[in-house]
Design a protein around this nucleic acid. Sequence first.
DNA 1: CATGAATGAGACTTCATTCAT
DNA 2: GATGAATGAAGTCTCATTCAT
Lengths: 191, 191, 191, 191
Amino acid sequence: MKSLNKRDEILKAAMEIIAERGFHGAPIAVIAEKAGVGAGTIYRYFENKDVLIIELYREVEGKLLAAIQEGYSAEKPLKERFLHLGTALLRYLIAHPLYFRYIEQYHNSPYGARLRRDKMLKQADNHDLFKELFEQGIVFQELKELPLFVHFALAFGPLIALMRDHILGFAVLDDTLIKQVIEACWDGIKR
Amino acid sequence: MKSLNKRDEILKAAMEIIAERGFHGAPIAVIAEKAGVGAGTIYRYFENKDVLIIELYREVEGKLLAAIQEGYSAEKPLKERFLHLGTALLRYLIAHPLYFRYIEQYHNSPYGARLRRDKMLKQADNHDLFKELFEQGIVFQELKELPLFVHFALAFGPLIALMRDHILGFAVLDDTLIKQVIEACWDGIKR
Amino acid sequence: MKSLNKRDEILKAAMEIIAERGFHGAPIAVIAEKAGVGAGTIYRYFENKDVLIIELYREVEGKLLAAIQEGYSAEKPLKERFLHLGTALLRYLIAHPLYFRYIEQYHNSPYGARLRRDKMLKQADNHDLFKELFEQGIVFQELKELPLFVHFALAFGPLIALMRDHILGFAVLDDTLIKQVIEACWDGIKR
Amino acid sequence: MKSLNKRDEILKAAMEIIAERGFHGAPIAVIAEKAGVGAGTIYRYFENKDVLIIELYREVEGKLLAAIQEGYSAEKPLKERFLHLGTALLRYLIAHPLYFRYIEQYHNSPYGARLRRDKMLKQADNHDLFKELFEQGIVFQELKELPLFVHFALAFGPLIALMRDHILGFAVLDDTLIKQVIEACWDGIKR
DNA sequence: CATGAATGAGACTTCATTCAT
DNA sequence: GATGAATGAAGTCTCATTCAT
């Protein structure tokens, strides 16, 4: 692989260290060393540590959303689309467990608070895909008549829970199990 | 409200501050001030900050488990038992949102790591109730033939997700909605 | 043994703990516990920790001086008197190694500084015995014509050094060796 | 005097403060101020305070040993060698009274305990010079037939005691007196 | 008299950030 | 542009001393 530029090296190092050790275990000096740059250099690319962390979150979230949209077609039947999204999400997170850890760390941190406030303001943002899916499902009476956020919870709550078990080594998620789980989620939301 | 003893004042203060601001925002000095005691006093009741945090977790977890077991009867039909547990859990967390926040903070922290290791060793512990429920359901062919941890994920993942939305103010969980959600979870796990 | 009064219990406890663990390892709370009294009680017998430590030093020094004076007779020949004092000193310290440790701790501490200043002012005090011995020896030309403090150093420096080795377990000081050592000290000071 | 590098400034400051006020009176903040650096800077050069103190001891001991070995020749007669070592030691300590104070502080401290254990294991180490001297003296029947540690005590005990008096201002050690004292020590150990 | 819970000053140490090189 | 030595605010914890019981 080609060597990344400094900015990306820093982001990569930060992600790995924070994902593995949490924010507690990720002083700037450690991130700098892992990235192979001087500590001061980080401040040439990011105004301060907070900015680095928030920026990193955006990148990770972006990649994740891009991944699940790959091969997605709004033309296909509702259930098929749901299965696609759920499966893609789970597969991507399993393939990139550090991303999942990072996202979780982020949500449970002062930084996450800012995110939540942001989300409250501009509700939809990147969740459009799911939003559209669920709204359509309700209109076409394929899904239960429940508020959107409940559908989100029913659909993704189990996946997040499973990912935790997976990372802790409790669970082994093979393709068969992934399929079964997503189907079960569908059972939860379908009418 | 009657004034608590010092130990409980400290635990209460710690819980509120950590739940609201995270571990970052909860230095001993701040906890002490909120509890109305000197900083040194905390160390008369807890060997160090870690111990305080772990102890607090145990208390919170204990109360939560006690709450959901109240009125629970192993004699009732499977579905009814499931609805009871899910509803009780959700209601208790809604009534004590700070407990939920604290538990979440705890799980995503170095302290949580210890917990996870413990859980891996003595799996069952207090989850016996759920374990028994799911195992029975599988044997009697009422529930899907899936590993236990998947049932856990399908049943509680959505509830946790909902609680987050609730705390952030996205969701308003009234009794009707609670009932619908737990039913939907049941749909997810039932055969 | 009859149970001591509280004051003595406190002094005894302080002595043992400080001798064994140094001033670092001797908080008031620990001394109180070992003495079987409340921490506050110590302050009824001693104004503060410094006073306790200084008082304790005086007691220990007093006992030591008393011990070496026992059986001492100013009538006997010079060498015999010297052998008596040296031997008595060494024997007493070997029998009470904690006393020796305590004295050493004390000398190397802020408290010791005060002592040294005091000594500078009222030179002689309890050293009269030795002073008289050495002065006489010089006058009668049995001892080298050297300042008194040199005689002190030549006579007791080796004993202190030996005690250290003894306490650390390097040395085993039996009666034969004690006799030889004191004789050697005499060789050092005698003309 | 040329300005030292930061590490040496720190060691120098620590030495002076500890020698004069003991470990009690030498918090990191005070050492830092005297060294003209920030408190945090000390931790760039020494892992923690213990390491600083131990390192400092090694340096002081090293210089002391180097000083007494200068001009020493194993070819010369036994007595001459002894006089050389004793005189050099006393002169060096008189010229560097703080070194002596520091060494004494160190020996009577938790740090010293570690040293003592080490010494017990690898007895000889840097004392080889003296050891060889005493052993030879015994073999050639110039010295008394006594255990090595007794010779150490007889030879150096008086010097240490004298240094104490000197530092306290009791004693004035000029060249004549130094010579007389070392000779007297020789009388103590010679057959 | 005796107690020991409570206190808070002060010790050690970490780490985000700056800035001279 | 890049570096990393230096900084000092802030965090955890200890312990001599007080005082209500």
